[in-house]
Amino acid sequence: MTDKPEIRYPLGVHHRDEISAKSGRPLRDLTLDQVQQGNAQPDDLSASTETLKMQAQIARESGYDEVAANLTRAAEMAGMPNVQILEIYEALRPGRSTYYQLLSLSQQITSMYGAENTGGYIREAAEVYRDTGLLKDEDR
């Protein structure tokens, strides 16, 4: 049915040696010795887009569609810096953005990070906020 290699959960048991961190560093390389010698960076301890996509697939195959959709957005956001994430959050809070600001944010992250799902989520919010009065005052 799928030409993807079979993924077995938990990854930590079945695929540990194949997993790399967001930095690209293999997980098996992250030993106590390496850490003690100062040879580790925060990005060595973050999940990669690829790993989060695998987890999304696992969730979908286990019948948790909404968790899968969230992990798919998370996979896209794994590539974004912290400030970008905080900016998206702030823009989605009530009364913070105009309709066009949300659309533009949606386009921006879709093109910059290939974040189609997250972009779609923001676009959908823009429509709802417009219909239900949750946009920035001037735009109501």
Partner: peptide
């Protein structure tokens, strides 16, 4: 910390 790289515990 390594488990954050694996993400197994993000599941239900």
């Amino acid at each position: 910390q390594r488990q954050r790289v694996l993400g197994d515990y993000l599941h239900t």
